[in-house]
Amino acid sequence: MWKTILRRVLIMIPELIILSILVFLLAKAMPGDPFTGSINPRADPAQIHHLMEIHGLYDPWYQQYWNWVVHLFHGDLGMSYEYQEPVVDLIQQRGANTLWLALFTMVLTYGIGLPLGMYAAHHEGKLQDTLVRVYTYVTMSIPFFVVLVIGIWIFGYALNWFPTSGSVSAQASGLGGTMLSRLDHIILPGLLGALFGTVNIVQYLRSEVIDAKHSDYVRTARSKGVPMKDIYRHHIFRNSLLPIAAFAGYSITGLLGGSIFTEMVFSYPGMGLLFLNAINFRDYTVITALVLLYGFLNLLGTLLSDIVLSIVDPRVRVE
């Protein structure tokens, strides 16, 4: 198994190199230059020219790329033109915010989705099942941002239960206070995100469990005299959770990218919002760094789910 994992990791290296070149070239190909818009439009063209030169923007692409890579390895992703802060610091702050929200959402999503999916499958065709399916269909048919807007309007503005923007309140003091305030800020977006995320899990798990229920190995277990509730525990749930466990590895890295919708509606200073702003301001260094990071997270996610699968599934584990 270790060999498989190591090989998978090694395969990632060329993938990463290709990814970084692509990202770099893409950033270069974007129209406009980083100074348009952020500098007084009546600024002296000579001054702009000077700035461009300082930032090495006239060098050939491969040299710029190489400089960029060298800096990358020194943990230097450049300065954000917009925020006038090192991109690394920016990503660290925003990443932390997104991480909390992502973890919270994930726990809620699986915490609600798994039992609900199993419950529905267990009562296949009965009223309980129908109710769960109605829930999934309704949720699926409403666009996500509508849910967000309605949610923030009801619980944020009308009922005033939760804060409607930011990641931590300015008045919070002390470690405990800050933590509580952070939690307060992520409950509503987390819940709404989870509401949405569960739908996929519920539907997927439900059909997996139902398939397993009618499988031959469950019939074998029944003919051994194993009570149905134990069959659920030992055979059905375990087997149907397997693909979901593998998917979880993938989805966590997806969540880390930050949900642009959620962060926009809640003005939550996370990665998604950062990305959106960076595009608005043509903040090249930030865009490049984020796209690279997203690409990396994606590769990591696939790797993670492969590893999880190779741990839990003997058919992959034993080679």
Partner: peptide, 8 residues
């Protein structure tokens, strides 16, 4: 198909 693929 009569045996559980995930159990020894």
């Amino acid at each position: 198909s009569a045996l559980n693929p995930l159990k020894r």
